[in-house]
Design a protein around this nucleic acid. Structure first.
Lengths: 341, 341
DNA sequence: TTGTACGCGTTATCAC
DNA sequence: GTGATAACGCGTACAA
C-alpha cells in the first residue's frame, strides 16, 4: 500500500507555519530563527517527509538533469567514460539520464526528444550518428566527447600528440619500418589526428613507413582475421626488418600481439607494438602492451565542468549567448610496457 | 536566449479548443474527430510544441523512471548488464537514472534518497553494500541482480548449474586434480553456488580436488601476484598431474593462463582451465578460453520485466500487495574454447 | 465529443 | 522573519 506522501502543507499544518516558511527552511534556512529551524527539522522526521524534486523543477525550471547518449558500453572506453561522468555527481550534483544509441539517426532523435521532454538542462554526446550541425540546432547547451564537433562545444583527447608520442617511441626503438594500422577515419573526427601525427613524425625523421587504412571489422573474429592478413602481408613485404606497429586501439593491438606471440612462441625482437587508450586489455595481455593512455577521468570531468558552466550561464537573469565554441584538448599519457623497449 | 515554451494553453488558444481537448489529443486521440486531430497536429508543428513530461508526472504520478545502482563500470559484467538494461527502453519505455556506488553505505543511501526525490517507480540494485532487508524497507518495488536477496525480488544466474557444467567439463578432460580458485564468498550471495556446485560434482565422482578461497586482490597487479603464487603452489603440490582449474571469472582465468603460457611457451597438456562470465577477455586471450557464459541480455530483460510487472500492479486502483518474493534464475551457457579439450 | 475547475507539490512575488 | 497567493504545465473528475 503506497502511503500518501507528506507535503509542505502537512508540515505547515503540523508546525503552524506557512508553506512558504517550510520552503524557505530548505532554500534559505538562515532566514529563519534557529529555534524555528529546529521545530521544522523535528517535524520532518516526525512526519517522515520525502522531498519531491519534480514539483521543484516544475516551479523553478531547474531539473538538474543532464542527458547522455553513448554509442555502446561493450567498448571499455565508453564504459569507463560513462563511469567517470556519473561520478561527477559528487562534484556538481547533476543527475544523468542515459541512453545507448545503436547507430540509427531516427532512434537517436527520439532519445533526444525524450530527454528534452524531461527538461534536461544540457547534453553530453558521445555517439557519432547525428551531425554536430543538427545537434547545435537544439536550443540547449551541448558538449561532445571525441566526435565530429564543428558546431558544438567539445572535449577531446589530443590525438595528434598521442600519435606523435607513439610514433616517436617506435622510432627510438630503432624500427626499420613504421606501420600505422587503423580503420578508415573521417577527417572531421578527432581520432584523425592519430593518422596525421604518425605521418608528420615519419616525414620529419624521414622514416620508412606504411599506412594501412581499411575496414578491419567490428567483432573479435573479424578483427582477428584482418590482423592475421596484415601480419602475413607485413612479414612478406618486410622480412627480417624490425617492424614498429602503431595500432588504432588496444583491442587491435592485443589481437596482433597474440598472433605474433603464438607464431614465435615468444615476443620477437623483430616486432614492436603500441596501442591506444590504455584499456585494461593492454595491461592484461600476454605481454603487457605499451599504449597511449587517454585521460578518461579528466576528459569526463572537463566535459561536465564545461557543460555546467554553460548551463549556469543560462540560468542567469540575463544570460550572455555563447559567442564562440569551446574545444578543449586533453593530452594523452604514454604508458610504456614490455612491447616497446 | 531560451525561448519560452509553448504549453497546452497556447495550443488551445491557437486552435480554439480547450486545454482538456489538447490533453486528450495526446492521451486518447480517438476521442476526437479525425478532423480535429489534424487541426491540433498542425498546430503542434506550427507552434513547435515540446512536451513536458515532468508536469505530466506531477499530475498523474507516473514518472516512468527506474533507478539503478551499479557498483562500477570497469568490470565488463556490470557495463554489459547496464547496457542491456538501458536497451529495454525500447520494450518498456522506462527511463533510467543511474548511479555508481563506491562501496560506501552512506553515499548509497544518499543516492537512493535522490532517486526517491525524483519519484522513481522502481529500483534495480546491483551493488552489494546495503542489505536486502534495508532495501525492502523502502516502499518501492525493487529487483536485485546477482547479490544477497533474502528480502527482495531478484534475478540471478544459476551459479550452481554453471559450476556443475564447468566442473563436469574438467572432469571429462581427464584431469587428475580439480581446483576451484575464488575469493572468499559469503553464503548469502548467489555466486556461492559456484563453490557448492564444484564441491558436489567432485564428491559425486569422487574426484581429487582442492578449494582455494582467499583474498586475491582487485587490481590487475594484485590478481597477477596471487595467481603467480597459486601457480607455483600447484606445480609443487601436484607435479606431473593434469590440473583442471575452475576460475571465479575470466579476468582471473586470463591472468593464470598468461602465466602458464609464458612459462611453457605454449599451452601445455598438463593444464586445463575454464573461467566464468564469458567476458570479451575470454575470447581475446592468447588461447581462447572456455567459460561459463552468463546470459546478461536475458538477465537484464527479466529483471526489468519483473520490475515493470510489479510497478504496474502498484498503479492499479486497488493494488494487491506482493505476498511472496520472486527469485528468478537464468541458466548459464557453457562456452567451450581451446583451454579445454 | 468537448469544456470547466481543480489538484499535483513546489517556488516566486509581494505584502506585512 | 513570516504569510498569502499566484504561478509552473498537465491530468482528470464532472458537467454540458
Amino acid at each position: 500500500m503506497t502511503q500518501k506522501k507528506v507535503t509542505f502543507d502537512d508540515i505547515a499544518r503540523y508546525t503552524n507555519f506557512s508553506k512558504t516558511t517550510i520552503s524557505r527552511y530548505f532554500n534559505d534556512p538562515d532566514s529563519l530563527t534557529v529555534k524555528n529551524q529546529d521545530i521544522i527539522a523535528k517535524a520532518l522526521v516526525d512526519l517522515n517527509y520525502q522531498e519531491n524534486k519534480l514539483a521543484k523543477v516544475l516551479a523553478n525550471g531547474k531539473s538538474e538533469f543532464i542527458g547522455i547518449i553513448v554509442p555502446n558500453l561493450y567498448l571499455d572506453y565508453y564504459a569507463e567514460m560513462l563511469n567517470q561522468i556519473l561520478n561527477t555527481y559528487e562534484d556538481f550534483g547533476y543527475k544523468f539520464l542515459v541512453f545507448v544509441s545503436k547507430n540509427s539517426e531516427e532512434t537517436e532523435r527520439r532519445y533526444i526528444q525524450e530527454l528534452l521532454a524531461y527538461k534536461i538542462e544540457g547534453m553530453i554526446i558521445l555517439s557519432h550518428t547525428i551531425s554536430s550541425r543538427e545537434l547545435a540546432s537544439y536550443d540547449i547547451p551541448i558538449v561532445t566527447i571525441e566526435r565530429e564537433d564543428a558546431y558544438v562545444n567539445s572535449v577531446n583527447t589530443d590525438n595528434y600528440m598521442g600519435a606523435v608520442q607513439a610514433t616517436s617511441l617506435l622510432y627510438k626503438n630503432d624500427c626499420d619500418i613504421l606501420v600505422h594500422i587503423n580503420s578508415v577515419v573521417r577527417k572531421e573526427v578527432p581520432a584523425y589526428g592519430r593518422i596525421q601525427g604518425f605521418q608528420d613524425i615519419c616525414r620529419e625523421h624521414n622514416l620508412q613507413n606504411e599506412l594501412i587504412l581499411r575496414d578491419l571489422g567490428h567483432s573479435h573474429q573479424e578483427i582477428h582475421r584482418s590482423m592475421l592478413e596484415i601480419y602475413e602481408y607485413l612479414n612478406k613485404k618486410y622480412p627480417h626488418q624490425k617492424k614498429g606497429l602503431f595500432m588504432a586501439n588496444d583491442t587491435h593491438a592485443n589481437s596482433m600481439l597474440n598472433i605474433i606471440f603464438r607464431d614465435h612462441g615468444t615476443w620477437p625482437d623483430e616486432y614492436r607494438i603500441i596501442g591506444f587508450d590504455d584499456s585494461p586489455i593492454a595491461a592484461q595481455a600476454i605481454i603487457p602492451t605499451s599504449s597511449v593512455g587517454q585521460q578518461i577521468d579528466k576528459i569526463a570531468y572537463e566535459a561536465v565542468e564545461l557543460l555546467v558552466s554553460l548551463m549556469s550561464e543560462r540560468k542567469k537573469r540575463r544570460p550572455k549567448p555563447q559567442t564562440e565554441l569551446i574545444h578543449k584538448n586533453v593530452t594523452p599519457i604514454l604508458v610504456r610496457r614490455e612491447t616497446t623497449g
